[in-house]
Design a protein around this nucleic acid. Structure first.
Length: 475
DNA sequence: TGAAATGTTGGGGCG
DNA sequence: ACGCCCCAACATTTC
């Protein structure tokens, strides 16, 4: 009988449709499931506070599922000596002869994994990696001139047209176990949950883990999907799938979602999976983009440094209701509705003219679905400096957006209770109300709720002027 | 997966 | 019945 297989879990925290697990079962040897915590290997993009909270609970869920298969999840802390050292220790302890894992696509992680793969192979181990996270891996698709795509529509047309998505893989629920188990850390020892009880309320909104992912998918299909095209833009209702954090940690596979979306012809929803694929495509082919604009001329953009305004944005105290509601939803739940993400991003990079990296960093720390590929794409799109980006002159008017997508102020009142008594007409722009109206609603601008930190009209014009300067420099 | 400025059209009030 | 004006409702262009 072959000696054990280490099954190294990373961002594939599920048992369904898991190619590496399937291959390990086929190999026949005892399986030793492993998770190694090594944030220092992620460079500047170690998991933020919100994703750490998620990971903590997702690991607990995964560990239980693995126990139900007659196995165990071995957790090791690699924050001092790194993943490779921890793998070697485990290989030594268990006499394993193979290591399987699911691929990740962040530049530094590719580098790390390649090194680990080469090193362990040189030491005589069987090392295999698998696709668990994408419908199409970044190197599997290129345009007619053999280059990576930079525009979504042709990317997706090309990708979807020739796409054959294999059906999800089912695995047995009884795994071969070793005679004796190596020691494991407790999840708590990784200290993933924040010291201050900031994330306590996250559990009202989320159930991390594979079961929680399936619950969201089921709910989406039974109710949300019908009106997706309209509903996905309305932040006051549950109009989106809310699958992003589950996808980030691989608690559900895009193939599972794809096959179900096919059944109800959810073209619009499938395109959202497409954006996620496109983001990974771009990150792989343009690995510098997490920190630098894809379009180099934007390196000279005259950003403003304004710590007070940045802080007002972060805390949801800009005085612009839709922006503040979004930022408070983010702080309270670890998530923000996509329509509102576009609005708050536009406000930061255009009305405040603060570098998109500050926004990306804040999202990175506070979003439970923070994902390097998607976060980078989203912010560069908003700032106008990325692939297939919104033209620079596309400045969202947060009041117009508010009137259009939250006409009855339901979303605003949920997150801004201090404005609750303003009418549906008034609540989108309280600074335009007269004092009598504000008094009647118990609102004092500058006290309960701030005055706008910028004039929308003036700052919009200033943003357009600023963009003109880099355009002229380029010519 | 914009918004604002500008242009065009057509219905209705009114003298 | 007509011209005139207003302006809402679109459409186009500009940033």
């Amino acid at each position: 009988m072959k000696s054990s297989t280490l099954l190294w879990f990373r961002q594939d925290l599920r048992l369904t449709d898991h190619s590496a697990l399937f291959a390990a079962l086929e190999r026949g040897a005892p399986i030793i499931p492993v998770f190694i915590w090594a944030p220092q290997e992620e460079g500047d993009w170690a998991a933020g506070a919100a994703t750490c909270w998620w990971l903590h609970h997702s690991l607990q869920s995964l560990a239980q599922s693995i126990i139900n298969c007659g196995s165990r999840l071995i957790i090791r802390n690699g924050s001092d000596h790194g993943s490779l050292t921890q793998l070697r220790i485990l290989i030594e302890e268990t006499n394993a002869s193979a290591v399987y894992w699911s691929r990740r696509y962040e530049p530094l992680i590719i580098k790390r994994d390649t090194h680990i793969k080469e090193t362990l192979r040189a030491e005589g181990l069987e090392v295999r990696s698998f696709n668990a996270a994408l419908l199409t891996e970044p190197w599997d698709i290129q345009n007619n001139s053999g280059k990576p795509f930079q525009v979504f529509t042709p990317y997706w047309k090309n990708s979807a047209a020739k796409l054959f998505v294999p059906s999800p893989v089912k695995v047995p629920n009884k795994w071969p176990a070793p005679n004796s188990w190596p020691a494991t850390e407790n999840v708590n020892a990784l200290k993933l949950t924040p010291i201050v009880p900031w994330a306590e309320n996250f559990k009202l909104s989320w159930r991390p883990g594979e079961q929680g992912a399936m619950e969201n998918l089921t709910l989406f299909l039974s109710t949300v999907a019908k009106d997706y095209t309209e509903g996905r833009n309305i932040p006051s209702i549950r109009g989106t799938s809310r699958l992003s954090p589950h996808l980030h940690f691989g608690e559900i596979s895009p193939r599972q979602i794809w096959h179900i979306a096919l059944m109800y012809r959810g073209t619009q929803f499938m395109a959202e999976l497409g954006w996620r694929e496109f983001a990974h495509h771009l990150l792989f082919h343009f690995p510098h983009t997490p920190k630098e604009p894809l379009r180099a001329d934007y390196n000279r953009f005259p950003w403003r440094e304004d710590a007070a305004q940045l802080r007002a944005w972060q805390r949801g105290m800009t005085g612009i209701p839709l922006v503040d509601a979004g930022m408070r939803e983010l702080w309270a739940t670890g998530w923000m509705h996509n329509r509102v993400r576009m609005v708050v991003a536009s406000f930061l990079v255009k009305n405040l003219r603060i570098n998109w990296l500050h926004g990306a960093r804040w999202f990175w720390d506070t979003l439970v679905d923070a994902d390097l590929a998607s976060n980078t794409l989203g912010w560069q799109w908003s700032a106008g400096c990325g692939a297939d980006a919104a033209p620079y002159f596309r400045v969202f008017n947060p009041v117009t957006q508010s009137l259009k997508f939250d006409p009855n102020g339901l979303y605003l009142r949920r997150w801004l209770p201090e404005l609750a008594k303003l009418s549906n007409k008034e609540i989108h722009a309280p600074w335009e109300c007269d004092v009598a109206t504000l008094n009647k609603a118990n609102v004092r601008l500058g006290a309960e709720y701030p005055k706008p930190i910028v004039d929308l009209k003036v700052s919009r014009v200033a943003a357009l002027e600023a963009w003109k300067t880099i355009r002229q420099l380029t010519k």
